[in-house]
Design a protein around this nucleic acid. Structure first.
Lengths: 118, 118
DNA sequence: CAGAATCCCACTCGATACTG
DNA sequence: CAGTATCGAGTGGGATTCTG
């Protein structure tokens, strides 16, 4: 993996997982790739509005180095690239989907509360 | 929640989840609390070897403010406190357990490879 | 023991400009 | 379009010290 941020305790499984997905935007990128199968750089850049171009490139690069995603370059003009999950990346699907499920549930409850407050 | 780091897109469920667990040590703390039900500050400090006392206090405070964990203070001498998950915090169990499962699987494969390399 | 306060350096990360 | 290079402000976070 690119950077080891956590190692409180050799073998802590949660830390092992975090080594791969703890980057600022990694989980979100993986989520988009999981849903859309293939994404162009520009598309991700539009979707992740608050992620700068530089950050996006960095995160994608780390994900690629960690073997979670694969980059394909097409020598068209202008240049075009896209990204997709590797099999290793896809193995993280349960983690990402668990996050999605919890987030959906939270968003529902939260919007209900907001409506009640109006 | 204490800080909103992500909001690329209103309603992205993964981002909603990350707002709560994206802190540097939060997932690990939640994992420990999930497994051990109740933890004293010192115990967590020992378990998360590479998390400074200051960081641990900060993360615990944010988790408490977000309503994921509950803090209990005992006016003994010397002072003692412990932490446990709230019901809201427990709702994140599937996410944490998914991380644990993936991490265990990864660790197994990784140790096998290391053995093969010896 | 459990934490708050202060200090301060290293690094993160956004903005901008440039390249193939 | 899909990045890389450079720079500078802001902040994360460790070390240390102090309190109840």
């Amino acid at each position: 993996m690119t950077r080891r941020v956590y190692d409180c305790q050799a073998g802590c499984p949660v830390e092992s997982t975090l080594q791969f997905i703890s980057g600022k935007w990694k989980s979100v990128i993986l989520y988009h790739l999981l849903k859309e199968k293939t994404c162009h750089f520009g598309q991700l850049h539009r979707d992740l509005k608050d992620c700068s171009q530089r950050m996006l490139a960095l995160q994608l690069h780390e994900l690629e180095q960690d073997g979670l995603i694969q980059k394909n370059i097409y020598q068209t003009k202008p240049l075009s690239t896209d990204y997709q999950m590797t099999d290793f990346g896809k193995s993280l699907e349960p983690v990402i989907l668990a996050m999605e499920k919890w987030g959906n549930s939270y968003n529902q409850q939260h919007s209900t509360i907001e409506e009640a407050e109006l």
